[in-house]
């Protein structure tokens, strides 16, 4: 099964073992929520749960689990 990810925000899961630091998620994010700080993915707390990073990530490294409203 998939390797365990790191929780970087309330509902964003980032798996450092899979991430290749290609920055596709950072470019594609419409609210500029994601950022690399010392090679660690950081969430700036602006996530609107549009799931674009989950859909575009080529390496299954970032996953957003939408909260129930």
């Amino acid at each position: 099964m998939a390797k365990p990810g790191k929780t970087i925000d309330a509902h964003i899961l980032w798996t450092p073992d899979y991430c290749k630091h290609c920055s596709t998620c950072i470019t594609i994010c419409p609210v500029k929520n994601l950022e690399f700080r010392d090679d660690e993915m950081t969430s700036l707390g602006k996530c609107t749960q549009c799931l674009l990073c989950t859909k575009y990530c080529p390496d299954f490294a970032i996953e957003v689990e939408p909260k129930e409203k």
């Binding site: 998939a2 080529p58 390496d59 299954f60």
Partner: peptide, 23 residues
Amino acid sequence: YIKWDRMPTTWCPGCAIGTVFKQ
């Protein structure tokens, strides 16, 4: 549908094939 023990893939960072594979 994915063999998780073979991840991460051998493709370069940001490669288009990863996106097509996922879709």
